[in-house]
């Protein structure tokens, strides 16, 4: 069967069909490759080529274990989880040889992180650069950086972040609150907010 015939199916239906027909997995790859590529680069700082390699491996992992996909879970959370784990695993191996990636396509994400700090009475100034926000994110511990990126750049809910990082919602809320405070402190120190 050709992958084009599956376009009208939702993610979870495609995942179920992919157990017996690999063509059903192709629309899933098509739907998620752009945002997962951006996500890999945001949390790891990998070059586009490296990020593509990671993503390809993540999709292969997902396909190999498609039978273990729990239909009670959203496919997007599951594929994010696999991609996240694969990225972190490779990131740990090669963190010393990372390139800085371009932030041109991420205006909205960075603005959302800044806007999230209004509740702790910090206001973004118009002069702030995306590069500075990225610098602050890079200074944060990995967990804080991941939750901020998932919450404000990927716009995931607490429940979705919990499914991706395999953590209870309450814990996710705590992580995000702490990460925001750390971000605000660093931003204040850097005098960008």
């Amino acid at each position: 069967m050709h992958s084009g015939q599956y376009q009208d199916k939702n993610d979870e239906q495609l995942a179920a069909l992919a157990i017996n027909d690999p063509h059903a997995f192709v629309p899933l790859v098509r739907r998620y490759e752009a945002r997962l590529l951006a996500y890999i680069r945001r949390i790891s700082g990998f070059s586009k080529e490296d990020a593509e390699d990671v993503l390809q491996e993540a999709f292969m992992d997902a396909y190999r274990h498609i039978a273990s996909f729990d239909n009670n879970l959203k496919f997007s959370n599951w594929i994010y989880r696999i991609t996240h784990n694969r990225t972190i695993s490779i990131y740990r191996k090669k963190r010393n040889s990372l390139n800085n990636y371009s932030t041109d396509d991420e205006d909205l994400g960075f603005e959302r992180i800044l806007a999230s700090n209004e509740d702790i009475q910090l206001k973004a100034e118009n002069t702030i650069t995306k590069q500075k926000v990225k610098q602050i994110l890079d200074q944060l511990p990995p967990r804080d950086k991941e939750v901020l990126i998932l919450a404000y750049m990927e716009e995931k809910s607490y429940e979705e972040i919990g499914d991706i990082l395999r953590a209870p919602m309450g814990t996710v809320a705590t992580w995000i609150r702490r990460a925001k405070i750390k971000f605000a402190k660093l931003a204040d120190k850097e005098k960008i907010i």
């Binding site: 629309p27 098509r30 490759e33 593509e52 390809q56 999709f59 039978a67």
Partner: peptide, 19 residues
């Protein structure tokens, strides 16, 4: 694209079988 590479692997029979 990765989707196209994936499809190519299917057509060439290079894709491993899922568990």
């Amino acid at each position: 694209s990765i989707a196209e590479q994936f499809e190519q692997k299917i057509n060439q029979g290079d894709l491993p079988k899922p568990v």
